[in-house]
């Protein structure tokens, strides 16, 4: 036993450290459920802000939803918007302070339901903001009701027999809609269920923040996420469910990469 303790002592030294919590994250425990993807995305945003050295120049706009308390966790300037209106608030902030990096952080109930109009028009205007979209196919905060992105047949508290197309319509693939708008500069869909996916998502968020500083249009990063409480599964089961059920409808990859000048019709890659 002492041999192992000795060995650990030799490894656990500051010079051998390869990963630690970002200094941009506040030292508080997040209120999210165990295994929630929000925590991973918060961490990635904080990592990217730290790496780019823009902690003083970044303003976030938090949504209504589980991520409403994002301002408690990431140590930057924040504004809280009315439900769905984060892109409108971010537009105002960016136009008053064009030198700042402005991003919104929204869930699917906020961005794809009540805020669809604000989202579409902000992107269509080509506002130079970053939009981070957490898509977990359910209203997580209010108890797992059907969201626009809920899959057909998915059981939620408001669709106890599964989502029915005649009654509830089709799942909304809003990222595909966004990618068709000429104001979008970079539109991508990522996930954070494995270490490899987390690395890709981090790269995408970093690219979005860098492009946003060049003011070439709206950067939109969708993160296909889990809501294990809303889906009534364990975190590991919900990751498997997401891979099996959500990825066929929401395939990962870049949907648009370029500037807002591009007017060519959107072509799906991958």
């Amino acid at each position: 036993m002492s041999e192992i303790a000795e060995r650990l002592k030799s490894i656990i030294r500051p010079e051998n450290q390869v990963y630690k919590k970002s200094s941009v994250l506040n030292d508080v425990t997040m209120h999210y459920c165990p295994g929630c993807s929000h925590g991973v995305v918060h961490k990635l945003i904080a990592d990217v802000i730290e790496e780019l050295g823009i902690q003083d120049q970044t303003i976030g706009v938090s949504p209504v939803g589980c991520a409403v308390f994002a301002y408690n966790y990431i140590d930057i300037d924040w504004s809280e918007a009315a439900h769905g209106r984060a892109p409108a608030v971010a537009t105002g902030i960016k136009r008053i302070m064009p030198e700042k990096t402005v991003f919104t952080y929204q869930g699917d109930g906020d961005l794809a339901a009540i805020g669809t109009a604000e989202t579409m028009h902000a992107v269509n205007r080509g506002e130079n903001i970053v939009m981070i979209f957490i898509n977990n196919a359910i209203y997580g905060m209010t108890g797992g009701q059907m969201a626009p992105t809920t899959l057909l047949g998915q059981v939620t508290s408001t669709t106890p027999y599964g989502r029915n197309v005649d009654l509830n319509g089709y799942p909304l693939k809003i990222t595909e809609l966004i990618a068709q708008l000429p104001g979008a500069a970079y539109v991508t869909r990522q996930s954070v269920h494995t270490a490899g996916a987390v690395r890709k998502a981090r790269k995408a968020i970093k690219k979005a923040f860098e492009l946003s500083q060049k003011n070439i249009g709206t950067c939109f990063v969708e993160v296909v996420s889990t809501c294990n409480s809303g889906w009534k599964m364990t975190p590991v089961e919900s990751n498997d469910w997401m891979v099996k059920q959500m990825f066929p409808l929401f395939p990962l990859g870049d949907l648009k990469d370029g500037g807002k000048e591009a007017t060519e019709p959107f072509q799906m890659k991958g």
Binding site: I11, I12, R13, N16, Q17, V18, Y19, K20, K21, S22, L25, T29, M30, Y32, P34, G35, C36, S37, H38, G39, V40, K43, V192, H193, T194, A195, V198, R199
Partner: peptide
């Protein structure tokens, strides 16, 4: 990387 609560430090 996958820890949602950033509670792991790696050496």
């Amino acid at each position: 990387s996958v820890c949602p609560d950033s509670c792991i430090t790696v050496y």
